[in-house]
Design a protein around this nucleic acid. Sequence first.
DNA 1: GACCTGCTGCGGTATG
Length: 760
Amino acid sequence: MLDYLDRVPPGKTGPKGIQAIWITPIRALTREIELSATKLARGLDLKWTIGIRSGDTSAKEREKQRVNPPHLLITTPESLHLLLARKGYRELLGSLRAIVVDEWHELMGSKRGVQVELALSRLKSIAPHLRIWGISATIGNMQQALDVLLGVPRDNTPRRIIRAENIDKTVEIISLFPADLERMPWAGHLGIVLLDQVTEIVRKSTSSLIFTNTRSFAEIWYQKMLAHAPELSGQIAMHHGSISHDIRAWVEDQLHKGKLKAVVCTSSLDLGVDFRPVETVIQIGSPKGVARFLQRAGRSGHQPGAVSRIYFVPTHSLELMEAAALREAFRRKIVEDRVPYVRSFDVLVQNFMTWAVSDGFDPDETLREVRTTFSFSSISDDEWQWVLNFLTTGGESLRAYDEYRRLIRQDGLYRVENRAIAMRHRLSIGTIVGDAQLHVKFLSGKYLGTIEEYFLSRLDPGDVFWFAGRNLELIRIREMDALVRKSSRKSGLVPSWQGGRVPLSSQLSDMIRLKLDEVVHGRAEDDELKFLEPLFDLQRQRSILPDKDKFLIEYFETSEGYHVVMYPFEGRFVHEGVAALVAYRIAQIRPITFSIAMNDYGFELLSDQPIPIEEAVETNVLGVENLSHDIQASINSTEMARRKFRDIAAISGLVFKGYPGKPVKDRHLQSSSELFFSVFHDYEAHNLLLRQAYEEVNDFQLEEARLRRALERIAMQRIVITYPDVPTPFAFPIIVDRLREKLTTEKVEDRIRKMALKYG
DNA sequence: GACCTGCTGCGGTATG
């Protein structure tokens, strides 16, 4: 980009204002980018000023930038919108000539991507000479990434994809095996059986990254490693999204200076820190997707021609198949797509407020612009009117309340007149909706990070828990702070967070089924598959090992009841949908209730009555006919949509998350968003935000398109029902997961019973 | 005989 700008340098008499913007998803990254941008500019002999603008930028620096804008501004999507929410943004940005969107693959798969699309649509109108670059990691839908970023063409400016040459690196996957298969659990997620081997690898490497799937596992692995190898004390650290930015920055710094041998982390180290390589990368448990695993592997062996090496640590036996599947995916150069969000009306509503709080917007001009974005290219005149009406009157349901009449029309422009509304809006810009967290602090005031209220509220003062690699004793909870002190107690509770659940990707699922097919037909060559042979044998003895032409259903009885287990290998979201669908369809044959369990490989239906499974298969229980209807009938989509609506309500500005330092309580947010949902549901069924909630459930929770493809594939397979005497190795992990979940629900039920006694 | 699940990311202006 600087090269391009060099050819059109800022003229002495030319317009003042920002000439170029670099958009990055992470604010912590900006300092690194500034350094490289400065280096580049120096190399090209440009007399450019470079500025950073993010939530971390001080008020003083912001004021400096306002008076004297930098030539190149490095910023986040949110901060860019804050600039667009300012009066006089046309002068500031009208001479803009270049925008680079860094890590576009990352932004595109979220609503932040929609935010970028909308900002670009505005900027293209006010800055006619604008050129746009996107930088992306390898993804399956690169052409679409380009189309989404650049939007519907407004003229004949050519577009092209430039691929880096020689990016095909050799990646070597090395699985860790226990001494013998017997030592490996059939179920589980932690993988601690292999602690000794992992520690040995860390000892021998100068620097290692150890990726775990959850924050609590990172905490556990860190503690277990220290207990196992005390001499590593002071040489290993941990890093995850709930640890304070200061501590994380320190850990990154120490790692890069070579002062740390290893960091146990979550995907917090996938992105956002500069990519100085480490010697060794270790992945514990399923990476769930090819791209993620590839990116992590790429952290090692950075020298030209060097091999990237990644150790795979299975957490249960069958997971070893994934190592073979990942190797196959690398060989075939298969990577996942990033699916862009479309028609996210909550983001559109927020954007209109942004356009309106600054200089106001002209509806016709804005409609033309919005239709050039990928996300809203299909917006109809009616939908457009609905959004405007919603913001000016509150819509049909909220007409009676002044605070929802957010816009007024004046001289042909839509504006915000009320200053309180304008301020609340500026505080609410962004599409990331988090949960309320308590701040964990020492008495001295040193801030360690955040933990969810529901975990800490279960503790009593004096209780010890592990966090940020320390043993901490809870002293008390005060407002939003949990005060702690160091504890010398060796054991402690491990916090759990309510994070997202990443399902196995469709591409990795494909490869797993392919590997299974190789095993069935004796073509398996990967070490992992050979190692698992005794387990596959047991599966064959008790049931069958399905190849790609067969779909396996197991039916058996235990003291718990009657079990039907199926194995689509399609990831847990799809299994959740298929399980509900099958349960519903069987219940049409004969009234029967089930409890449902699933993991990424399959799902189980359990009942206290015999299950008419043959009859169900004969009546095409897995068919695609009436699929949409049956899905609607089988799942509680209203309840799922109600939960999705929480984010939509926050993004569209229906609920206010509070002023800095004075957040609105989670419970309060939840109840007010539920209230809106109920009102719209009962009185305004065509409300676009309400409809969006249902669409998001279909697209992202049920993964309906993927579910349909899975059923179409199954329709081509031969269904085989087996009747094992005891649970098979395939069934076992699913049953174990259900038992664990059952325990917690019993606790919940217990609590409800107590509450009923107390209040009833 | 088998179990310590649940990622990441952002964010305050105009006026007194």
